[in-house]
Write a protein that binds this DNA or RNA. Structure first.
Lengths: 328, 328
DNA sequence: CTGAAAGCGCTTACAG
DNA sequence: CTGAAAGCGCTTACAG
């Protein structure tokens, strides 16, 4: 029985009806100052806390946001988690955290979110099937893909303008006189990797500049191993564009271990601008994802859909910017 | 109305009572195979999902665990978050994630956890006042401090055996012929920093070995700046014991920037064994915190207290081990 | 094994 | 502004 104290107890002590207690705590209703004071005093004395579940049962609303995350080893995401938690807390919402091991979120996770009738769902670095999306739609639960992009007719997503960013990185490296480039992708089936590759190679092709592609997995170890293999093959490009920072750090370490000087012999550009990119040992040139803005836009969408559900889809892309450091 | 489908709808379609539907989904009750099949078929057809809130209202239990975390910038904690989420998911529990900016968790966070009548609370790198603890006790909500320690009469906590670990680190460095040491602490008011300092300096005093103490803040930047200042003062010790890995990486980078060779001129030992400690560029010797075991013990405690609340306090300490790499 | 009924702690028309 | 009453979607004695 929660802590044993319910609205009826408070009502009795305050000498008012349960309705009045409810009106004081739920807000939006008119209560006389006198009643309010009596209720608050009684509640304080008894240590009353409204039961969120009973409330949800009536209003059919919750103040819980489901946040689904996969890549907790990439420092980018804990940062994102922190920002979301802080933003939503300020708005009175709590975060139900879901960790998924797969690129696509699983039925059990979705069911859990539905069980709790969450007010909204944010999926940060995974995708989900169309069928699952329907489950959320049917229940009028707003859903947004964060840092991923999918069919714009069916999903709402928020990401950096990856195409523009990678084009500009290509132009930047060309201007730095690099004439033989390598792109290291994360998991190939992610929209971020695909778009970053597309923008980058588009520009290189236009300028008839040689490039190669390598597939990795968005992890430090992946970047490290990929670079190591290239070094083993004796084929160091004049510049690397690596699909995220944490892999780029792996690339830098592999280069350093093999005595390949950066930025003189080869250059490296990452993506994200995680804190570690600024560490003096790395000093990585990278593309900054405007996390705060992305989070803010996501929150705006979710809140507006909570207030009035439209189920609108689409994609918001936010411009980032190049952070020039010492690896180029 | 969740998705509009409730137990009554299912009951009608299946041609049974609402009670039977409940018995099928709640489990633990006896239902004939025939009824079960009819109910399941109807539920499947309608897409029925039991409302967790209505359920909680009756049972006065939830399957939500509150997890409070502060230092999301230290890679140790995202790892911990992931482990907890995975463990609890396997047991049918969900994680309500709370991020706190302060060393001590705030009333609003506590209230939120109480609002949701969480089944248990885990606080990973913060502490809380005795008053707040009483709030949880009163509601029979089990509470554990993870990687922190407090008054053993009042709290239940789980940590590495920090005293033993730091003693053994001291002995290890003495054996390596270091005769002038520095201890860099995290925030001074955390039990981890205090105990690691205590064990370390105890042994050094016993052996009449010179040491100095420096206070930092558990961040990379903190470690970096602290080391930089020491270097500026021209006073490099023969070994550093740094209270966590992420600070130790900062120390290593400061040393490297100033051309101070590790492990020849000075040695560095960290604490935690985060993934990055193994990165080839760092290769940090450190003390491994047995995260999986610590998580497992925490889960065991929470679950046993959920099943039968005793409110027992105490402290479980788990032995870690020295991971010897290239910085010593 | 099964159904009718009570009740968990709230909010919200409704009437005054 | 306020109270009495209905009802949100469940679980659980109770009786059969």
């Amino acid at each position: 029985m929660s802590n044993g104290i319910n609205a009826k107890d408070v009502a009795k002590l305050a000498g008012v009806s349960q309705s009045s207690v409810s009106r004081v705590f739920f807000g939006g209703a008119s209560v006389s100052e006198k009643t309010r004071k009596k209720v608050l005093a009684a509640a304080e004395e008894l240590g009353y806390i409204p039961n969120e579940f009973a409330r949800s049962l009536i209003t059919n609303k919750t103040r819980i946001i489901g946040l689904v995350m996969k890549g907790v080893n990439n420092p980018f995401y804990p940062q994102v988690l922190k920002e979301f938690t802080t933003h939503f807390k300020g708005l009175g919402y709590s975060i139900l955290f879901v960790h998924t091991n797969n690129d696509e979120i699983q039925k059990e996770d979705v069911d859990m979110l539905l069980h709790y009738n969450v007010a909204g769902v944010i999926i940060t670095d995974a995708t989900l099937s169309l069928k699952v999306t329907e489950d959320f739609k049917k229940n009028h639960i707003p859903l947004v893909l964060f840092n991923r992009k999918a069919d714009q007719q069916k999903f709402f997503s928020i990401s950096t303008n990856n195409l523009d960013a990678s084009r500009r990185i290509a132009e930047y490296l060309i201007q730095k006189e690099c004439r033989d480039m390598a792109y290291i992708s994360g998991s190939r089936n992610t929209s971020t990797s695909i778009e970053r590759e597309k923008g980058f190679t588009e520009v290189l092709e236009k300028h008839h500049i040689r490039f190669r592609r390598f597939e990795s997995d968005y992890s430090y170890e992946g970047g490290y191993e990929t670079a190591k293999e290239m070094i083993g093959n004796g084929s160091i490009p004049s510049a690397f564009f690596v699909a995220n920072d944490i892999m780029a750090l792996g690339v830098l370490d592999a280069l350093r271990e093999n005595g390949i000087a950066v930025p003189t012999v080869t250059k490296v550009v990452g993506f994200d601008n995680i804190n570690m990119a600024a560490w003096p040992i790395y000093n990585l040139t990278t593309w900054e994802q405007p996390v705060s803005q992305m989070v803010q836009e996501t929150v705006n969408y979710v809140i507006s859909e909570i207030n009035e559900y439209t189920g609108r889809s689409g994609n918001i892309e936010i411009e980032g910017k190049l952070i020039e450091r010492k690896t180029t």
